[in-house]
Amino acid sequence: MTGVLPSQQIAELIASGAVAAERPFVDGQIQPASLDLRLGSIAYRVRASFLAGDGRSVADRIAEFEMHRIDLTAGAVLEKGCVYVVPLMERLALPRDLQAIANAKSSTGRLDLLTRVITDGGAEFDRIAPGHEGQLYAEICPRSFSVLVRPGMRLNQIRFRRGRAVLNDDALARLHADTTLVSGGPATIDEGLGFSVDLTPGRDGLVGWRARPHTGVIDLDRIGHYDPAGFWDRIEGDTGVDGRGRIVLDPGAFYILVSREAVHIPPDYAAEMAPYLAMVGEFRVHYAGFFDPGFGHGPAGGHGARGVLEVRCHEAPFVLEHGQVVGRLVYERMAERPAQLYGEGIASNYQGQGLKLSKHFRS
């Protein structure tokens, strides 16, 4: 059964002990094609980001780089610009034919909260080798906003796959012909399905958001609580975008924009935003890269959903133009159709979305 494991098979991994946790698993933790990972009770402030490396443990590297440790039990602030390592509640004992990949959850990425999973012996972020046994850790670096966290919060998610079932361009074109994977723009298929940026103003003139440089703390447990004006500057068509549909990204700034295309993930497939490619431009798009089966799917309440683009500009100012391709969605077959789809009777915050900040902000 090659492909990404669905929710019911993730439940079987838990039942078999291949995925275990120091506390009982909670409702909603198993998603259609992934498992949410929970923060433990201690955060280690470290001098720098690191990977354990072959034959090394994360605990050994923490001992090398630790500055101080923070008890999260009553809640604690992780400060903007600092790097933390937090042991997660979950641990793995993967079978030899099963690998895993982790990513930030959507709300995490929309806060410019860089968080990646690291493991003992790991030589890559967010990649967990077949047969891996041991503790999982989250490296967390708040980039735009300081955040208040507590044990049990879910910032990362993990996907399990057996073999590889990525669709090549021919198979992707056939799937698009059968099910219409994108609308609102042409299907650009080249090593995946191309994503382009929409810089046209909405009815209220809004094109996107830019994170303000000096803000208060965001409590990640507060949903629909914060006024966007305290944390974001509006980018509007008559001020932020010129008459030719262009915006100049400032180095070090973080933006929330939206794709021109409405995306559809059929029930038997999952998708992932492909890694940033330097030749695309002087920016990075999309920290949170998982798209679940049923995202934008009509019977699951979607009818197409546009992709929110989390954009950070790097070293030099960069001109981004309306319709410019900024990323690729790679589609992969599921090992089995999930028992429940994204948006189908579960708490799916971004089904049918357009331009949307994280769930912590008032609409």
Rank of each mutant, 00 (worst) to 15 (best):
R246F: 06
V207Y: 05
G237D: 00
G131P: 05
A316Y: 13
E133H: 11
L114A: 07
A274R: 03
V117L: 14
D97W: 11
N349G: 09
D198C: 14
A347C: 02
E261A: 09
L94N: 12
L111N: 06
F65M: 14
G298N: 05
S363M: 06
Q8P: 01
D178K: 11
R362T: 12
V117K: 09
A253N: 07
L114W: 13
L172W: 04
Y331G: 01
V248R: 15
Y276A: 13
I235R: 11
D178H: 12
Y137C: 11
R284G: 04
P299F: 03
A102Q: 03
G53L: 01
R222H: 10
E79D: 13
A335Y: 01
V207H: 05
Y269W: 09
L199C: 12
M89C: 09
G281H: 07
R162Q: 13
G243R: 15
V325P: 03
L88H: 09
G17P: 14
V19K: 11
H214C: 06
T239F: 15
Q340E: 02
D233F: 11
G327D: 00
L5G: 03
G352W: 00
G298M: 06
A59R: 13
E139H: 02
P293D: 01
A20H: 08
L167V: 04
A33G: 03
E310T: 12
H132W: 07
V117W: 08
F283R: 02
R328I: 00
V280E: 13
S49I: 03
A300R: 01
V46F: 10
A335C: 07
E66W: 06
Q99V: 05
T215W: 10
S57H: 04
L51V: 02
G185N: 09
E261L: 07
D268P: 00
P213E: 06
I223R: 15
T180N: 07
R143C: 11
A339M: 08
P142A: 02
V207L: 06
S49M: 10
R174E: 10
Q353T: 14
H214W: 11
L35G: 08
A335K: 05
V248I: 14
I10F: 08
F65N: 05
A93Q: 13
L220N: 02
P251W: 09
I158H: 12
N156H: 06
G121H: 06
A18R: 13
V319S: 14
L78C: 06
D238T: 13
F160R: 15
L329H: 01
L175S: 09
P6C: 12
I189Y: 14
W232Y: 04
A262K: 14
G28N: 07
A305F: 07
P6S: 09
E282G: 04
L148F: 12
D221N: 14
A229M: 03
A316G: 00
